[in-house]
Design a binder for these strands. Structure first.
Length: 478
RNA sequence: CGGGGUGUGGCGAAGUUUGGUAUCGCGCUUGGUUCGGGACCAAGAGGCCGUGGGUUCAAAUCCCGCCACUCCGACCA
């Protein structure tokens, strides 16, 4: 009977079917739900709270580096989208078009923004006149739409939530510096808040953003050995500025084109959290962004004083942490399983025996390790444990990534390993598109990035055997 | 977009081969007993069988179309 019960919210094990495990976690942990709109999800309160925490952390980092938030229109007139050639070619196949207003056909159709470079440029054209107007450091939090063929909750949805920063600078150097600064903010956010180790690097020309001169990326490795691009930062040079005729007068009274960047991180990062830390019991959330950092489960609430004591602890801890107390009449065991599935980093149990001893039980989600702690120094214990959980999550993720990262020196080795051994594959590359395409064809891998931290695996390109220019990370990606 | 799979109360399934008006478990509601790892008893509520058409006296079941989800590939930040 108990066994049957357990099956109700059972999550498919990762080894059995990783894709099913992933969607089970999303649905059963109540992060999101499918909607009647194809490819679009309902982000439920728990998922929304997680996103809000991510957003707040990032937003404060953006503001600390001088950025301001704005809100742009969600529609882009066709003419505007078409101003930059590479950009429109890159996005045209996946934009949604608005053709009618009410019953009337529009003279010029509008696309639902897939990204807002063109809107920002159109606006910057009006507000940038002088070097004194630079830099412009704008960001917006919004959703965008891309008409995707196949979708998966958080990883790829037709509408997704993100922030897009768009900045304008006097010089190329300043713009490149901004591009790097924002990439570092993303990388630090991933390690410090999400406990996800990332590889920083540059995209190859093939993989870079439509219209960009350089695209920087952070790449994370998921539990199943597939890579997930977790944040990008682009340097545009003055290409858009020329296309949109954005000019400013410099200190010598000559007209110049400003240099531009854009950078974004999306709700896809929630997919990264799930697939980096999750286990067969469900979600495991990093404490810094967990909607609930600690859940209080009172034991034997019918016994006198238990509910009161639990409530007292709740009120005390709520001053310093994101705390939830579960006073429902579900059994204690049910609650344990429920909050484990939802990835709550710490559980506090308090029962009659604990009250007698002026203690409570703290249980870590990541290791399920229990500790009995005194109520006198509860805040310190919780604080220390949350930090331990974060560190342990990061270490574990890093260890796994290292274990799943390996080098190959020949094409045969690449083909053989790509098929049998999931993970990041380090290999040398000559710099030619042809080789990138061939590796995709014969080994099924794409270039993830040219890491900033280079190392020499061999002298020659893994594909063609000509002299190598860079070491690349290759892999299969989401 | 190509190939495969799935669609039955909120969830998971049986029923489809061989047409006869829907079954089970969980969840939900109410009452009671429980309470340190997904509790138990009792009584209830809840279903346009994804959707549109066709065949038939009769369709969850057979035929055709469509939609959604899903896996593999292609595409894709």
């Amino acid at each position: 009977m108990a066994e049957q019960n357990k099956l109700v919210k059972e999550i498919t094990s990762m080894d059995e079917d990783f894709a099913k495990w992933y969607t089970d976690v999303v649905i059963k942990a109540e992060l999101a739900s499918y909607s009647s709109v194809r490819g679009c999800m309902v982000v439920r309160p728990y998922g929304t709270a997680l996103w809000e925490n991510i957003r707040n952390e990032l937003d404060s980092r953006f503001k600390a580096t001088g950025h301001e938030n704005v809100m742009m229109p969600m529609f882009i007139p066709e003419g505007l989208l078409q101003k930059e050639k590479d950009h429109v070619e890159g996005f045209a196949p996946e934009v949604a078009w608005v053709t009618h207003g009410g019953e009337e056909e529009l003279q010029e159709r509008l696309c639902v923004r897939p990204t807002s470079e063109t809107l920002f440029c159109d606006h910057y054209k009006d507000i940038i006149q002088s070097y004194k107007d630079l830099p412009k450091l704008y960001n917006q939090w919004c959703s965008v739409v891309r008409w995707e063929k196949t979708t998966r909750p958080f990883l790829r949805t037709m509408e997704f939530f993100w922030q897009e920063g768009h900045t304008m600078h006097e010089t190329a150097e300043q713009a490149v510096e901004e591009t790097e600064r924002m990439l570092n903010i993303y990388a630090d956010f991933c390690t410090d808040c999400l406990a996800i180790p990332v590889v920083k690097g540059q995209k190859t020309d093939k993989e870079k953003f439509a219209g960009a001169e350089k695209t920087y990326t952070i790449e994370a490795l998921m539990h199943d050995g597939k890579a997930l691009q977790s944040g990008t930062s682009h340097y545009f040079g003055d290409g858009f500025a020329r296309a949109f005729d954005i000019t400013y007068t410099d200190r010598n009274n000559t007209l110049q084109y400003p240099h531009q960047t854009s950078w974004g991180m999306s709700s896809r990062i929630i997919g990264a959290i799930i697939m980096t830390h999750g286990d067969n019991s469900g979600l495991v959330l990093p404490p810094a962004v967990a909607p609930v950092q600690l859940v209080i489960v009172p034991i034997a609430t019918h016994k006198p004083g238990v509910t009161e004591k639990a409530t007292e602890l709740y009120e005390r801890l709520a001053k310093s942490f994101r705390v939830k107390i579960d006073l429902t009449d579900n059994s204690a065991g049910w609650k344990f399983a429920e909050y484990e599935m939802k990835g709550v980093p710490l559980r506090l149990e308090i029962g009659p025996k604990d009250i007698e001893n002026n203690q409570c039980v703290l249980v870590r989600r990541d290791s399920r390790e229990k500790s009995f702690v005194s109520l006198d120094s509860l805040e310190e214990s919780v604080s220390a444990l949350l930090k331990d959980v974060h560190d342990a999550l990061y270490e574990k993720a890093l260890a796994r990534r290292e274990e799943m990262t390996y080098s190959v020196a020949s094409l045969d080795e690449m083909v053989e390993n790509a098929a049998s051994r999931p993970g990041f594959i380090k290999a040398m590359w000559c710099g030619e598109l042809e080789c990138e395409e061939k590796l995709k064809e014969v080994a099924g891998v794409t270039s993830r990035c040219i890491p900033f931290e280079q190392e020499k695996i061999s002298d020659t390109c893994v594909c063609c055997g000509k002299p190598a220019k860079h070491m690349l990370y290759w892999g299969k990606a989401y």
